[in-house]
Structure formats: structure tokens, C-alpha cells
Design a protein around this nucleic acid. Structure first.
Lengths: 340, 340
DNA sequence: TTGAAAGCGCTAACAG
DNA sequence: CTGTTAGCGCTTTCAA
């Protein structure tokens, strides 16, 4: 494994010149540069990142903290982040921190801090004030997806607004008996996404002159089986059955549709369903949804941190930024059979 | 940001002692160790990984090359790898190389080689001989999932065998008209998984005395919509309809079940379906499947590379290793209505 | 435009 | 058990 000295010798120049030629900073004559590049190529030389990091203070790594990998939403974020990072010549260090406090603190105290990353992207990371301060005190660019996070620029859809829009869509179609199948609002994760979506739902309902009934909110895990189980219960009794369901995410909405079908109900004739996220499967199930392109949020977050790294003086938005969510109407929503 | 020298001064010892105390290698008295630790804690000291890498030659990073992130199988592998790596104090550098040649070569030539990782885990990476040699020539431990890969220890289920088992299960139930919905065998990716599963199917069919009909193999993308589309076509014509489908992965099998239901067919009364992978959704759909726990394969691969790193002289299996695949019988398979 | 030399922060002999 | 010393491989002043 040859070092910079070998290249210098072969090219007949000094180590400093090799460094300048290969890194692109500093003056090097065109002729020297080609000679050096040729030498490096024949030797198969690659710089030692530890050595160059040691002197420059840059690792060219970005750390990504994410609570889940195997869910479409989070997977898409990782994809977007990875793509953007690779494009710009950075490597991605992945930290999957689940909910457990000890695992989180291990990542915070041990991994992230070891001068191994130039910047951090935190995905739906609900951290305590001291943790946030610790992150900030590293003096490294940080961006978050799914905020807000005190002192950290973050990015997400407006959950309250998206939920309101979804509910209003159902209301406009004439639905009055709308159940919200969402997450457990006591769950600590996720920036209270669950309670925000519930709030949007409730505000829309009440603005339409319907009084909010706590029983119209059912909590379930955010996946297809979760929606399916709730759907089976909810739709089993014809007299209590709603005419529409607002699912807090598409997976849940798909589960509800599957349950409805199994109970012999037609969607949307007997039941309208709307979701949030615009999951790829939603097209196949005809699920109306409000989407947000998580991968683009990932790219955006990368852009924020890299610009801070590479354009001195540039700063990202100081507060939380909402990305626009788009309503995609498909076949799962229609007016109720009998209005009222 | 304080360095080792600050800690040494505060603790009243030399840098070397601090290094020994904190890294755990070399003799340090208990009393000194606590004093050093205390000093490090008050200063919030953390070692510079670039500095220590430079001298030790170890980065404590493992690179993972994976072609997909947002598919359950691959996501599970990442989860398993991440978990195992974090447990052992290593960081994970993620490289998502899609099929395009240029992206692959970028990862190979530029990222992986830059002395940034101690080991590499390659997931279903179909590489050329020179690429494999380049990887090996790094002199770093490498393990693969989904092989075999020349000269590299790899790990996977036995695709031929799993496909044979699945098909035999259907044959034993009495099915004769069995269609295999698999992948496109011309696709270059994936270690020819598609053609292996087709081979297992064919061998089982022929062993049962049924002559292989090329029309009984239909290719489709490996996801739910792919299975759904094929299912719709395949099951649409009652006269040509098979009594059973062997899907090359569970997502496809689920798609087929959904298509069957939409066509008014009952599973398993009108159609038996079996898949491969034991996807979490399969339980909900009652899909019989042959599973393999991809996350455990990830952990296994980590174990191989880390042991090579930490136990000098230890070597992993020199050839490809098959992990056992388990048949999970659920409600989607049963004898055909009219045997024969 | 190039070279010489001084470290970056740490670890690993080697003495003591 | 602890301190001294010599680099790890590169980048970056500073001179030339």
C-alpha cells in the first residue's frame, strides 16, 4: 500500500506537490499535475483519510441517526440522504437508535462524539434538552427531519395541516361519521406526530360543526397489520360503522381497506379511506393520500449540512421548515352512500 | 475541544498513561485509571479517531455495500448488521450501490479504498472478477451475503433447495398445475437467485414426472404490485388457471393472493400459494413460506469479519455457507379441490 | 510554481 | 506500573 512519498518519488516531485496536485488546492502546473496523477494511478495510491483528517480536521463523513430502517418512510429518507451524500463525496455513517434510552445515549456519548463525523442528520429524533445541547456543542452542522428541535434546523410536513386537509377532504365529500385511526399519543417518539395528526383531525371536525367524540380516535401500530386489526374491529358492527376512515399513515389505511374487503364492504361505496405519506403501495390499493417525498427531505437535509461545511458563513433556516404535502386523490374516497 | 495532553496534565500523568488508561491496553494502576477517567470526564475528552487510526491502522469502521435499502429483505440485513456492529463498538458506513456500473465503480474505486474501513460486508453484490480481486487486494476481511463470490466467504439460503422444497410441498398436497411466478432470469443482479429458484422448481416438477412447460414460469418484479399484476393475468382465464402458485418471494405471493381475492377466488380452496422469505406480512395474509431471517445472516457476516479483525489467525469458512431455511405452513396452501 | 519542515493527536516500543 | 521518545501519513505555512 503505497503512500504519498512513493508517488512523490515516482513523479520526481516533493510530497507537498503531490498533495497539492491530488487534492486540487494550491498552485500546481498542469504538466506536474498530470505527471503526479499518472504516478498515483500506476501505484494505485489513495490518500489515507485518517492522516488527512488529522491535519485538516475534516472526516468527510456525515452521521445519520434514525430510529427505524425497515419502514418505507425511513428507508426512503436513508436513500435520499445516501444519494445526496455520495454525490458530494461524503460517506454516510448510519446509527439506528431505537427508543431505548441506553442505546440512544450510547450513540450520543460514544459514537457521534468521537470526532468521526463532520455533520449530523437526525431523523425524528426526540431528544432531551441536554442531549440537544451536547449535539450543538460539538460545533458541527446538524439538521433534523421531523422537528422542531430546539436550536436545530429541521424539516417536515405540517402534520396538523395535512391531517386537517385529509379530514376536510372527507367532510367535503359529505362524510360526517369519520374515524381517525392513528398512533398512540402517549408514545414518546416521533415529535408527537400522532397527537398533531389527531389535532388536525379534531380541528377539521369541529370546524364542520361536529362535536369531537374521543371514541372516534383509535390508536394502532403504524403498519398494515395494525390497520387491519383495527379495521376488523371497527367495521365489524354495521350500526357503529363509520362512513369514512382517516388513517394517520398509508400502511394503516391499506390495512383498513383489507379489513373492509374481508368483511364484504366495498371501498369507497361503503367506506372511504384516506391516508398520509403517499406510500408506493397506495397506488395499487387506490388509496387517496397526502404525500411528502421523504427522500427529498433527506436530500434537503444533506444540502443544509454540506453547505454549512463548504460555504463558510452560510446558515440554514434558523427555525423549522414545513415542506409542502400534496393531496393525491385515488379511488378510495367518494361521497357516502346516504349523506348525513 | 481538549486533547490527551490536557487530560494528562489534569490527572498529573503522562500522555502515554492516559492512553493506556482510557484504551484499556497496557498496565495502569487502578488508582491512576480512576484519576485519569475522572479528568477525562471533567474535560469531556474523547479520543480523535483519526489520530488513533493513523497510528494503529484501525478505523473501527465496517463498510456495507447493499443494492437496495427500501425492501424488507435488505432492510433486515442492514438492521442485523448495524446491531451487531454497534454491539462490538464498530461504526457502519453505508454504501447503496444500485445496478448502474458507474455507481458501483465509484464506490469501489473511490470510497471503499480510501483506508476508511477495516472490513467490508457485501450484500448480493454481483461483481466482476477484477472487482473481486480489487476488494481482496485491500487485504481486509470481507464477507458476503448472497453468494457465492470467488475467494470471499459468503452466506445465503440454498435457493435451489428452498425452491424445490416449496414446490414439493405443493406437489405433496396433490397439485399438478403449478405456476412459478419468479424473477427475470436475464437480470444480472442477485447472484442469479431467479434462475436458481426456477431450477429448484423445475427439478421438483420433473422429479414428480411432470414435464416442464416454459409457460409455467412467469417473470415479474419482486414486489407486491408485481405479484398482483401477474396474478390478475394468470388467474383471469378459468380454463388456464393453475391450482397452485409458487412465488419466488413473499411480496409476489401476497400480490398473487390479492389478485386472486379480487377475482373472487378463495385461497386456498381455489388456489394455493407459497412463497420464500417469511416476510412479516405473510402472517397476516396466511401465506405459507420458507424463511431465512436475513437479519441473522447480517449478524453472522459481522461476526466473521470482526473475528478476523480481533482474533489473529482465525479464518471464516473458505467457501459459501448455506443457512437453513425453515418452512412455515400457514393457511394459503391446501390440497387442490379436484386432485389431478 | 515548488520544496523543506513543522506539526495534527495519538499509540507503541523501550527504558526505567 | 509509568514516562520518554519516535513516528503514523498527510497538509500547510514559509521560503525559495
Amino acid at each position: 500500500m503505497s503512500g504519498i512519498e512513493d508517488v512523490a518519488t515516482l513523479a520526481g516531485v516533493s510530497k507537498a506537490t503531490v498533495s497539492r496536485a491530488l487534492s486540487g488546492r494550491g498552485y500546481v502546473s498542469a504538466e506536474t499535475r498530470t505527471r503526479v496523477s499518472a504516478a498515483a494511478a500506476t501505484l494505485g495510491y489513495v490518500v489515507s483519510s485518517s492522516a488527512s483528517s488529522l491535519v485538516t480536521g475534516r472526516t468527510n463523513n456525515v452521521g445519520v441517526i434514525i430510529p427505524e430502517i425497515n419502514q418505507w418512510f425511513f428507508g426512503s429518507i436513508i436513500e435520499g440522504v445516501e444519494r445526496a451524500l455520495l454525490d458530494r463525496g461524503y460517506d454516510l455513517m448510519l446509527y439506528n437508535t431505537s427508543k431505548t434510552v441506553e442505546e440512544r445515549s450510547r450513540v450520543f456519548e460514544y459514537f457521534l462524539v468521537r470526532k468521526r463525523v463532520d455533520a449530523v442528520i437526525a431523523v425524528t429524533l426526540e431528544i432531551t434538552a441536554p442531549e440537544a445541547e451536547r449535539l450543538l456543542s460539538l460545533g458541527k452542522p446538524i439538521a433534523g427531519i421531523g422537528g422542531p428541535l430546539v436550536g436545530i434546523p429541521t424539516l417536515s410536513i405540517d402534520d396538523v395541516e395535512a391531517a386537517r386537509l385529509a379530514t376536510e377532504h372527507l367532510l367535503l365529500l359529505g362524510h360526517r361519521a369519520i374515524v381517525h385511526v392513528g398512533g398512540d399519543i402517549d408514545e414518546q417518539m416521533d415529535f408527537h406526530v400522532h397527537s398533531k395528526r389527531l389535532r388536525g383531525y379534531r380541528e377539521a371536525i369541529e370546524a364542520a360543526g361536529i362535536s369531537y367524540d374521543p371514541e372516534s380516535h383509535v390508536a394502532t401500530p403504524f403498519d398494515i397489520p395494525g390497520g387491519y386489526r383495527v379495521g376488523k374491529q371497527l367495521l365489524g358492527d354495521p350500526r357503529r360503522r363509520p362512513t369514512a376512515v382517516f388513517a394517520a399513515c398509508d400502511e394503516v389505511g391499506i390495512g383498513v381497506i383489507l379489513a373492509a374487503r374481508e368483511l364484504g364492504l366495498s371501498v369507497p361505496e361503503d367506506l372511504s379511506v384516506i391516508g398520509i405519506d403517499d406510500h408506493p403501495l397506495s397506488e395499487m390499493f387506490g388509496l387517496t393520500s397526502i404525500g411528502q417525498r421523504p427522500d427529498l427531505q433527506g436530500e434537503q437535509a444533506v444540502d443544509w449540512v454540506i453547505r454549512q461545511l463548504e460555504e463558510p458563513g452560510w446558515t440554514p433556516p434558523s427555525k423549522h421548515t414545513f415542506v409542502p404535502a400534496r393531496l393525491v386523490i385515488r379511488s378510495s374516497t367518494a361521497p357516502p352512500r346516504r349523506v348525513g
